[in-house]
Nucleic acid binder design. Structure first.
Length: 402
DNA sequence: TCTGGGGTCCTAGGACCC
DNA sequence: TCTGGGGTCCTAGGACCC
């Protein structure tokens, strides 16, 4: 049966949401109407553009470039900090509104949703529903969205990316040659900056070129990805809207340090702070980790990582830190100037409440679990950064978690 | 000049086993 | 001196997304 899919994408999400929050708090200016960006913090060496206004776009400012570059293009650019709490609030408002249409909603990111409307449409058309959602969000929530209307997720997503803002576009199968094939391959979902030049060398420049290219050759050159890009170019996508909440497959945190660090003792302290955060999140998800991964980025932007398996799946801060520390020492070369440190847990499994017999009870483990639990409760009550077991950590002032 | 942080998925190569 | 092949598991790194 033909599926009925919508893709809802908030226009300039972080910037629009910041704008309406500012107005709500009494601001006289609407930053959507001036050259403005949402940016990271340059003093923390995370100065990149997270979102831009239409006016900023006119100056050629692009998402993910540095604030420095943005300022070069537009010296009067206004820069605002991001605020994930506010973004989460508006994201939830959007989700609640969309729930009135279907409960088959996949939250693809904080500002994008897929809706499977297949079983919810009787006499109305999918396009009309798309238009209604577009109008209601604007009127009731105060920001605009693009809506893509199609029969699978890929085409809906491509459609919502056509002209912006505040638009509803269809991309049905018969429209593919006219609406999608003339576009450059860089516009195709999942074709990034590494693959595009390789295709260019093969004289494949538009999505249409790719659609007509030899599937076998693509597969030989790009493996699974080659097969997928050919299917996408032809508008083929059989994946379902994943509306049921899923457990994460990995949990990780990383920090760009305010200054490069070349002392392994200091790096260990940072690894401890991050391990605590990761283990805390792991316990919140009621998962156990089988693998720990440590990532380092040097001042020259060289990334390395090491991973190691745990003897037994765990969510204990102590055990995760112990493994992470081991991995750090294994990979860190004396004198290296480190810019970023990350800790991640992988191969996660559901935590089952196992009944351990009195004889098997490991007293040390029990104590450790209890300590983790007490600290978690304090964190929940007083806020994450207030509580740390590493009392001496001055670095905690430098590294703040959300 | 300066280059985030959170993820998912894939691949190549090595170790090890029969 | 010449030296299999198939399978599994693990790790490091990379590509891509928002």
């Amino acid at each position: 049966m033909e599926r009925q899919i919508l893709h809802v994408d908030v226009n300039n999400a972080f910037l629009s949401w910041t704008a309406i929050e500012m107005i709500k708090n009494g601001s006289k200016i609407d930053i959507r109407e001036i050259p403005a960006i949402i940016g990271g913090d340059e003093t923390k060496r995370s100065g990149i553009v997270l979102a831009k206004s239409m006016k900023a776009k006119e100056f050629g400012i692009k998402t993910a470039e540095t604030i420095y570059q943005a300022r070069m293009k537009c010296p009067n650019i206004q820069i605002f900090a991001s605020d994930y709490k506010t973004y989460k609030k508006y994201s939830n408002q959007l989700y609640q509104l969309l729930l009135e249409y279907t409960d088959k909603i996949e939250r693809f990111s904080i500002d994008e949703c897929f809706l499977d409307m297949t079983n919810y449409l009787m006499k109305d058309t999918l396009l009309n529903k798309g238009r209604e959602i577009n109008k209601r969000v604007k009127e009731e929530l105060g920001f605009t969205v693009n809506v893509g209307v199609a029969h699978n997720k890929l085409l809906a997503k491509m459609a919502s990316d056509f002209t912006k803002p505040d638009k509803v576009h269809t991309l049905f199968e018969e429209e593919i040659p006219k609406k999608m094939w003339p576009l450059p391959i860089s516009e195709l979902f999942m074709l990034g900056k590494k693959t595009v030049p390789k295709l260019y060398n093969m004289q494949i420049k538009t999505i249409g070129d790719l659609a007509k290219a030899d599937k076998k050759i693509l597969e030989k050159k790009f493996g699974k990805h080659g097969m997928q890009m050919w299917e996408y170019a032809n508008g083929i996508d059989k994946t379902e809207v994943k509306y049921l909440p899923e457990k994460p497959k990995c949990i990780g945190n990383s920090v760009t340090l305010p200054e490069n660090i070349s002392s392994v003792e200091q790096l260990e302290e940072i690894v401890l702070a991050i391990s605590e955060q990761v283990a805390y999140r792991l316990r919140k998800e009621e998962l156990l980790a089988n693998t720990v991964n440590v990532q380092l980025r040097t001042k020259d932007f060289i990334d390395t990582s090491h991973q190691g398996k745990m003897r037994e799946a765990t969510n204990s801060t102590k055990e995760i830190y112990s493994k992470a520390k081991e991995l750090l020492n294994e990979m860190y070369r004396k004198g290296q100037a480190i810019r970023l440190v990350g800790v991640r847990v992988d191969n996660l499994v559901e935590k089952e409440e196992k009944q351990i017999s009195l004889f098997e009870k490991d007293i040390n483990n029990e104590k450790q679990e209890k300590l983790d639990r007490v600290i978690d409760e304090l964190k929940d009550k007083y806020g994450y950064n207030k509580i740390t077991r590493a009392g001496k950590l001055e670095l905690n002032d430098k590294i703040k978690f959300k």
